[in-house]
Design a protein around this nucleic acid. Structure first.
Length: 495
RNA sequence: GGCGACAUGGCCAAGUGGUAAGGCAGGGGUCUGCAAAACCCUUAUCCCCAGUUCAAAUCUGGGUGUCGCCUCCA
């Protein structure tokens, strides 16, 4: 498979450092406010990436940090007369809840910056000992000029950066581009930790370097994050880690594009953000995911109601395929089909021959060959698309095709069961939940609905269409949709 | 000013050399008591100009427009 690497600016063949294992680090949020759609985009993207790696059989260690000490948190704490822990905990919980609502799987390790202070001090020490960092006024700075590759990741050169209008020169720093590794506390109400350079707190960039070193080691497979982190955050992380350990920091650098709103980047500082909770009021997690995955992960996405609406309708189609087809099948057939699809995909990923014999029990001879060929074709299309730097747009086309195949095969139970199973499998790789059962759903509702439907059946037998329609309209008003099909009447609870 | 990207039908969006995936919306039809869903059919020559090539949305050069980074930001 190929992955676009920001550092080399090209698609690179993906090869892990250690056979079959992937160490991936994603820069997590600074928890000082509600998460917005930009965060959703970012973490849905990396969720999809990790899900796909696991689908391919890699053993993934996914680390995503939480920045819980930072000027913004300190300022917010001061403004609200709260401790920085209170602010960080409040918004960390908001973040966690939002991630769960979006069906974003938790990372394997979610370290907090404040739990990794020792490692930050260690790295800072190493850099000072090597003469690559210096203390000044209680602060510690990294000597950018001492690291020859500085600027390679973000394609900047030091002279251009220095002459940039926004760089402040200061007497404390040797070079205006030098960045903070350790910041001395300036007043009593600031949080601080003891260090060889006095009480202080870490700079932002050293936090990630330390958490990576502690949980993943000196070299990792993939370092990912939002495009806005390329400079200075990732550039600086790379510089200090490589300078400290004399090893390449990350084999692949991946960056996701922004969410745009009204022709501008959605961001905290522009105050034009829509929170995840805002969006969830009108659209569910599947719709948000479809909206995001329709676009290439590196391209900007324009947020607007129309696109979300379109995504919602698209999800509806996948959902309809799931419920329509499920309704005509029995549980046993579905389970058998799921098992078969699992076998087939596993064999394909291992590039071993497909076990035709396993199909014997399921489908008759005349169907077998063509059906199997088509299932394999769809899986191949999906894998090939995703292998091209996560072309989710193409992969989604496969989902829609499979959904349609399942619908068309409704008369042939086993065939539609196989397509249904395939749909469930592939959509879960992208993080969709088609079988999300409604929270209102319970045994009593089930019985009541069965009862109402049986009454309506009698009414319809008498061709009392007025009453029959009244029941259907009435249920629609309270959020239950009835569908009259050949097999009988089905009901679903509206979103 | 330096650096990095983008421009495809009404909207969103794939596609990096051989005559344009998919989704949404629209139109027509099948099915249905009706509805919903589903299914079938249907809508583009790819910002402009020049060049390379037998052949370009796809490569090169030049325009025009838009965005991002260079300050905290996913």
């Amino acid at each position: 498979m190929k992955i676009y690497d920001t550092l080399s600016q090209e698609l690179k063949e993906f090869k892990t450092i250690e056979e079959n294992k992937i160490k991936i680090y994603v820069c997590g949020p600074t928890v000082y406010d509600f998460p917005h759609l930009g965060h959703a985009r970012c973490y849905i993207t990396w969720d999809m990436v990790v899900r796909y790696f696991r689908f391919k059989g890699y053993e993934v260690t996914y680390v995503r940090n939480v920045t819980d000490v930072d000027d913004k948190i300190i300022n917010k704490a001061k403004a609200n007369s709260l401790s920085i822990e209170q602010i960080a905990d409040t918004y960390y919980n908001e973040f966690k809840e939002a991630m769960a609502k979006l069906n974003i799987a938790s990372p394997d390790i979610e370290p907090r910056a404040t739990e990794t202070i020792d490692e930050m001090i260690n790295i800072t020490k190493i850099l000072i000992d090597k003469g690559l960092a210096y203390t000044s006024n209680g602060d510690v700075y990294f000597k950018v000029g001492s690291y020859p590759n500085y600027g390679r990741l973000s394609k900047q050169n030091l002279d251009d950066l220095r002459s940039g209008a926004r760089v402040e020169s200061s007497e404390i720093k040797e070079d205006p581009m030098d960045f903070t590794l350790w910041k001395a506390v300036k007043s009593q109400d600031e949080p601080g930790w003891e260090s060889p350079w006095g009480k202080g707190r870490p700079g932002w960039h050293i936090e990630c370097s330390a958490m990576i070193k502690k949980h993943l080691g000196e070299t990792i497979d993939i370092h990912a994050g939002g495009q806005d982190l390329v400079f200075p955050h990732h550039e600086n992380e790379k510089a200090q880690s490589e300078a400290a350990f004399d090893k390449p920091f990350a084999k692949y650098w991946m960056h996701n594009g922004f969410v745009i709103i009204g022709n501008e980047k959605m961001s905290k500082s522009l105050n034009n953000f829509v929170t995840i909770n805002d969006v969830l009021e009108k659209y569910d997690s599947n719709a948000i995911r479809l909206f995001i995955l329709t676009n290439n992960y590196r391209m900007p996405i324009e947020f607007n109601d129309e696109s979300l609406k379109a995504a919602k309708s698209g999800v509806k189609r996948l959902l309809n395929a799931y419920t329509d087809v499920s309704n005509v099948l029995n549980q046993e057939t579905v389970l058998k089909a799921e098992e078969f699809i699992n076998i087939i995909t596993d064999e394909m990923l291992k590039e071993e021959s497909i076990p035709f014999c396993k199909m014997d029990a399921l489908v008759s001879d005349e169907l077998k060959e063509e059906l199997l060929a088509n299932i394999i074709k769809q899986i191949k299309l999906f894998i090939n698309s995703m292998d091209e730097d996560f072309n989710t747009s193409k992969a989604l086309a496969v989902l829609f095709e499979v959904a349609s195949l399942a619908q068309k095969a409704k008369d042939k139970k086993l065939e539609s069961a196989l397509y249904l199973a395939l749909l469930i499998k592939l959509s879960s790789v992208l993080g969709f939940e088609l079988n999300k059962t409604s929270t209102i759903d319970n045994a009593l509702t089930e019985k009541l609905m069965d009862f109402i439907i049986s009454l309506r059946k009698d009414v319809r037998a008498e061709k009392n269409w007025a009453l029959s329609d009244k029941i259907r309209d009435g249920l629609k008003d309270i959020g239950v949709t009835l569908k009259d099909t050949k097999e009988g009447t089905t009901w679903t609870i509206d979103e």
